[in-house]
Simulated scan of single mutants.
Amino acid sequence: MPAGEHVIGLRLEGYEDAERPVTIAVGESRTVDVTLVARVETPAGPTEPGGPPTRLAVESQPAGAAVRVDGEPVGATPVPGAEVAPGEHVVRVEYGDRVWEDRVTTAEGTTTRLTVSLGGGVHQGWFWGIASTAVAAAAGAAGTGGYAWSLHDEYETASPSRQDEIRPTGELMLDVADALWGVAGAAAIGALVLFFFTDFGEEPSGTVAVPEPAAPAGFDATAARDPLPLGM
C-alpha cells in the first residue's frame, strides 16, 4: 500500500468490528496486532423471565361487543385481560353497526384498561314518531275543541230548532277533543320516557385508564386478598 496514514478495519462473524489507524513511511514494513472482542448477543423478550404479563382489559357500553386487537379477535366485552405484547396496538370494538377503533399503547408488565361507549339504545325513529303523534293529537284536540266552543256560542243565541241541530254535533266534537287530549298526553309521556333511552347518534368514544401493575402469571389476586383460615 502507498505510504501515509491509513485506517485498517477488521470484521469477523461473532466478534465486534475493530479499526486501527496506521502510518506507514516510504519503504517501511509494519505489523499491527489487533485483539477482537467476542460479540455478546442480548436475548429478546422480557428482561425478567416469569415476570408479570402485559394485558389489555376492555369494557363497553353496551356489553357484548366484539373486540379485535391488531385484527385478531380476543373475545366479547367485558374482556378481563387479554395478554398482548408491550407497545402500540390497533383496537377495534364492534356492536352491530356501532364501531370504535383507535390505537392503544400498553406498557410492559401492566394492565391497560379501556372503556368504550358505543351509544346504542332505542332507535331515535321511535322517539320522533311518538313525539310527532303527541303534537298532532294536541293540534287536533285544540282545533276540535275550538270548533265545539264556537258551536256552543251559536247554541246560546240559536232558536230551539237550531239548538236541536247543534247539540249532537257539539257533544260529539267535545268527546273527540277529550279523546285527542288523552292521546296527546299519553304520547307526550311516552316521548319523555323514551328521551332517556334513545340513541341520538352520539359518536362512539373510548377512554384509557392509567396502566396498573399486572399480577404475575398464575397469581391469584383474590386469594391474596382473602385472609388465611386460622385453625383452632
Rank of each mutant, 00 (worst) to 15 (best):
H152V: 00
V176I: 10
G170W: 00
S132T: 02
I8G: 13
G75K: 02
M1P: 15
L10R: 01
V122N: 08
I189M: 11
A158S: 04
I24V: 15
L56C: 10
L174A: 09
L12M: 15
P204R: 00
T47S: 14
G27Q: 04
A131L: 06
E108Y: 02
A221L: 14
S159Y: 04
F219L: 06
G75M: 05
A214N: 12
E101H: 00
E202Q: 06
D17R: 15
G45F: 09
A177N: 02
E28M: 15
E19I: 08
G206E: 07
A188I: 05
Y155W: 10
S161W: 00
L228E: 15
G45I: 12
T110R: 13
A215G: 10
G50T: 09
V183A: 08
Q124K: 13
R103K: 11
S117G: 12
E212M: 04
A137C: 02
T23Q: 14
E212N: 02
G45H: 11
T110A: 11
L174K: 05
A66Q: 12
H6Y: 06
L230H: 12
V93W: 01
G27N: 07
A187N: 10
H6T: 08
M173R: 05
A179R: 05
Y155E: 05
A3H: 07
L192C: 13
G206D: 09
V210D: 12
G96Y: 06
A57D: 12
P213I: 12
A179L: 03
A85E: 13
Y147L: 09
E41L: 11
R113Y: 07
D199M: 07
G87K: 05
A187Q: 10
E19L: 12
A3F: 08
W100P: 12
T115Q: 09
A214P: 13
T110K: 11
V84I: 04
E28Y: 14
P46M: 13
G27I: 04
T35W: 08
T157V: 03
V176Q: 09
V176R: 07
D226R: 15
